[in-house]
Design a protein around this nucleic acid. Structure first.
Lengths: 200, 200
DNA sequence: CTCATTACCTAGCGATCGCTACGGAATAGG
DNA sequence: CCTATTCCGTAGCGATCGCTAGGTAATGAG
């Protein structure tokens, strides 16, 4: 069960966590391999042996982020009994998580690969696909909720409503990176919910 | 009136416009001096003689952007007779401008310097200050509007309302860069206006 | 004309980028 | 023990980064 050769001298999971923090705070292109090896306390060959490449490490980081720090926002949406309640819980969770003092501000999936050259935007395209999947999940739930009789905002088509709340989420993330605190994002979330009057 | 030495052999304003397009599409750090000299059809020394440095060129670009392509959104807000009408006009203008086919998608001030190292975030801080100024202008107008008797959304403080519409604007910009078309952003804008019921 | 001034281009600076060849060190299997 | 395997750090690869030294061309001032 134990591998053949010399054992790794550092904690791979801890290194992944530290890499996540760095990519989250600085983005993909602004984080150099030098930054990573310095923060992880290892040399470049060790990083490449353990993770393959900067790109492959980032792919692991995004998966790790969505499975841990980023999971709460999606879970809050999924767990709520109603679609409107799901959106409200999602926005409130984001207000807290995007401004948590022990984390980088905002959302890694939203902000880690914004500024890219057109010829090297594969990383950006990957994150964009994940954002599109989130919008599709919201739209699907809105469609199902409407079929179940839950009232949507008047005149709002499911995809447009999903695009709206995705935009609010993306705006909240950037406001957090611009220094907004939790209270401000809570008010943004509350105002966004005013676009969806509660039934009854 | 004519300068002393050898005249410049290229159109400085046209070069500034092309540089604006490039920074707008790729962001500050992802746009190299090589990109710029290639797109402008000049050599590095000519660029440095004309603009000083990459940083100085970008500063000129941002001013130029806000005076031309970016002016319509702010003007739509300022021109409208009511605060609510200003926000609505601002969002509709943004829906059109952020997705105009002859321009880069989204807003340069919002997206040109998102991914930065902490030690070189002066460019980002500059854009952040411009965003903060926009929020402050909105909040001031909301305060004045409330004093004039124009109804704000129930329970919404001026700064929080400004932060909300700033977040919507930032989200619309990123949605445009993710491929959203004008129709989608129009629906996002309309949904955002639902948070502010029209009087009467 | 001469001269000062400014812009032109070629070539290349030092630094950093992502990444790796290489030889030694540490483990498991035999 | 010996060998195969895997990880370690040193040192440095070619490419690109933002930027500039140095020499020449083109203008206005006198």
């Amino acid at each position: 069960m134990t591998p053949r050769g010399r054992p790794r001298s550092f904690d791979r999971d801890a290194a992944l966590r530290r890499a996540t923090e760095l990519f989250w705070r600085q983005g993909y292109h602004a984080t150099s391999v030098s930054d990573l090896t310095a923060a992880l306390g290892i040399t470049p060959p060790s990083l490449y042996t353990a993770f393959g490449s900067k790109r492959a490490l980032f792919a692991e980081v995004v998966d790790h982020y969505q499975a841990t720090a980023g999971a709460a926002v999606a879970a809050a949406f999924a767990r709520a009994p109603t679609a409107r309640g799901g959106i409200e819980a999602m926005l409130r969770t984001a207000a807290a998580d995007y401004t948590a003092p022990d984390r980088p501000p905002g959302c890694l999936v939203i902000s880690a690969a914004v500024n890219c050259r057109p010829d090297e935007d594969e990383v950006r395209a990957d994150l964009r696909a994940r954002r599109a999947a989130n919008i599709a999940a919201m739209a699907d739930r809105f469609t199902a909720a409407a079929a179940d009789g839950e009232p949507l905002p008047p005149g709002a088509r499911p995809h447009a409503l999903a695009a709206f709340y995705a935009a609010v989420l993306q705006g909240m993330s950037q406001r957090a990176q611009d220094g907004a605190d939790r209270a401000e994002l809570e008010e943004v979330a509350a105002t966004a919910m005013a676009a969806w009057p509660a039934a009854g």
